[in-house]
Design a protein around this nucleic acid. Structure first.
Length: 275
DNA sequence: CTGCGCTTTCCTGGTT
DNA sequence: GAACCAGGAAAGCGCA
């Protein structure tokens, strides 16, 4: 991990979770965006593991693919190893997202400049079906809150559950309503799933049961606000949004325990087996 | 323009 | 008293 002990929380958060306008629905002019976010535009060959993860996160963000759609642990490697992967390796590691990643890293290897590569790719967020030189490269959009049409974390190389297998056949389906890119519960989940990007903000209380606890409630709220470009976000407001999830069974109540929540039956992608 | 889904904001009242 | 929890009400926002 490249974060030094002297790094402030705020700078850590900015560095790890991106600027306030990291939304793909903001027009993508990657030069400024990336130059701020992507401070290490060195050749991918020289990336650290952490930089590889940052790259992954960026690509997922840009394509509005849910971060849990790919098993990040399959990319526990540095840039040198990443660059040595072939097309099949990416398919194997990231399923249907593999081609996107492969294409992206290939361009990067050629250009050595992240922002150049993004510019070349015409990755308009509004193009629901990303067209790519590789066959069958349509990708799943983010997960859906709607339990009846839950779009999948499809990209796992080994879809084990019946749900996942079924959803695999629907990979061309255009995403349903997801106006702000990432829902709050997905944002929370992604913090939990990326410990390297979670500087003590939220922790699992019971990993298998999906119980977690806010350690720095206001910091999480600020981070959420940052993501939504809303500097007045507070834990008070965030928690109100969390409470709305009870009714939809995305979260379950945990009585008597402050700052503790539990993922419900309609929350997807948090289980280890789903990753 | 309208309706919908997901917050965001504000609020009152209760609990730890 | 501060921090948190519960949930109603209404408004904002992006999208189909």
């Amino acid at each position: 991990m490249s974060i030094t002990p002297t790094t402030t929380l705020d700078s850590q958060l900015s560095a790890t979770w991106g600027p306030t306008n990291s939304y793909p629905d903001v027009p993508i002019v990657m030069s400024g965006y990336t130059s701020r976010l992507w401070s290490h535009d060195s050749h991918p060959q020289f990336w650290t593991k952490y930089q590889v993860w940052e790259w992954l996160q960026q690509v997922m963000d840009i394509h509005q693919i849910d971060a849990s759609s790919i098993p990040f642990q399959n990319f526990d490697m540095d840039g040198h190893q990443l660059c040595s992967l072939n097309y099949q390796d990416f398919i194997h590691a990231a399923g249907s997202v593999g081609p996107i990643l492969f294409h992206n890293i290939t361009e990067l290897k050629w250009s050595g400049q992240y922002h150049v590569e993004i510019g070349q790719l015409d990755l308009k967020p509004e193009s629901k079906n990303f067209s790519c030189p590789f066959p069958d490269v349509s990708y799943p959009s983010g997960e859906n809150y709607d339990p009846t049409i839950h779009l999948p974390p499809v990209a796992s190389p080994t879809p084990s559950s019946p749900d996942l297998k079924r959803s695999y056949t629907r990979s061309h389906q255009v995403k349903k309503h997801n106006p702000r890119g990432t829902h709050l519960w997905e944002f929370i989940r992604d913090i939990l799933l990326n410990p390297e990007r979670n500087p003590g903000l939220i922790k699992w209380e019971d990993r298998t049961e999906g119980v977690f606890r806010f350690l720095k409630s206001e910091a999480v709220a600020q981070l959420w606000g940052k993501k939504k470009n809303n500097s007045s976000m507070t834990y008070e407001k965030l928690s109100r949004a969390m409470r709305y999830y009870y009714k939809r069974e995305i979260l379950e109540r945990v009585d008597g325990r402050r700052l503790v929540y539990k993922f419900g039956r309609n929350a997807r992608g948090w289980r280890e087996s789903e990753k």
